[in-house]
Amino acid sequence: MEPSLYPIAQAIRDRRTIKKFKPDPIPLELIRELLDVAVWAPNHGLREPWRFVLYMEEGKQVVVDAILQNAMKKRDPELLLRIPAYLLVIVHEDSRQREREEDYAAACTLIQNFQLAAWERGLGVVWKTEPFTYQAGFLQAVGVRAEEKLVGMLQLGFPEVIPEARARTAANDKLTVIHSNVALEDKKGNVTVTADH
């Protein structure tokens, strides 16, 4: 089959990061439906380490004020308020390194699920991790607790402008294929394997 005949592959290729939104409000029920799809992301031990905070309508002012108070460069509050909704994806930061990294990775896959499901329904998303999203003042203002990590601030809206696709490097250019299970040890004790690049 041609790759274009696979709907998931096509959705992955078609999705765009949207930065200019129409002013139309987003139905809350749509966001709930998309989150219910997104939570099917793989996550170790079914820990489901995430939670979400959604800022809509007048509630957006909380996020905008936090941005204005913590951003390093000047922002236009009117432009920030035009974004129809802000969705925060937050994880509990486990004290154990492996679990902490697994939970972060799971939340990232959840965000990708959300973006793809949103695209299918005509909703655009941009995943923001700007310097201010790491500032304690911003995190506290938007409700991220001390033991939590903000994985992403998603800006949501119906696209006003859909950008053109940007080329990707073919995976084969970054692929190493191992054809042998025989390890070769050099004189310094470093282990290498025969491989094609």
Rank of each mutant, 00 (worst) to 15 (best):
A146K: 13
D36V: 12
V191Q: 07
I90H: 13
R13M: 06
T133L: 09
V89R: 04
R13L: 04
E164I: 14
L184P: 03
L150I: 03
R121H: 07
V125H: 01
R145N: 06
N43M: 11
H92R: 09
P42F: 00
P163I: 11
P84A: 02
L81K: 14
P23R: 07
L46H: 14
F138R: 00
L184T: 14
A141T: 05
T194N: 10
D65G: 03
V151M: 08
W127F: 03
Q10L: 14
L68W: 10
R15Q: 01
R145H: 04
H179V: 05
D186R: 09
P42V: 02
N70I: 04
F21S: 07
N190P: 02
D76P: 12
A66L: 04
A71F: 01
L28I: 05
K60P: 00
I90E: 13
W40R: 10
Q135I: 12
A165R: 05
L110T: 13
I83F: 06
A105Y: 01
W119I: 05
E78A: 15
Q61V: 11
Q155M: 10
K74L: 14
I67M: 06
I178L: 01
T129M: 03
A183N: 01
A165L: 11
V144A: 02
H179Q: 09
A167Q: 13
E148F: 09
R51K: 00
V62G: 05
R32V: 15
M153K: 12
R75C: 02
F138C: 08
D103I: 03
R145A: 13
A136W: 10
L34E: 08
W50H: 04
N181G: 14
L30A: 05
V182F: 09
T192V: 09
A66P: 04
R13A: 13
V39N: 10
V63N: 08
E57I: 12
L156S: 00
L46C: 11
L184E: 11
A105H: 09
R16F: 09
M153W: 11
Y86C: 04
L175N: 03
K188D: 11
G189H: 05
T17G: 01
E147A: 07
R47A: 05
L81P: 03
E120N: 05
L139A: 07
R15V: 01
L110A: 11
T194R: 15
G143N: 02
N172R: 09
Y6R: 08
E120W: 12
A146M: 14
E58M: 09
A41E: 10
Q10I: 05
R168S: 04
A118F: 00
Y86V: 07
V177K: 14
D196R: 15
A71S: 06
V89D: 15
A136M: 12
M56C: 11
H44S: 14
S95R: 10
W40G: 01
A11K: 13
N172S: 14
D65I: 00
R98A: 10
A38N: 11
H179M: 03
N113H: 15
V64C: 10
V64D: 04
N181D: 15
R15F: 03
T133G: 07
Y55T: 00
G152K: 13
K22V: 00
P131R: 04
A117M: 10
A107W: 00
Y104W: 13
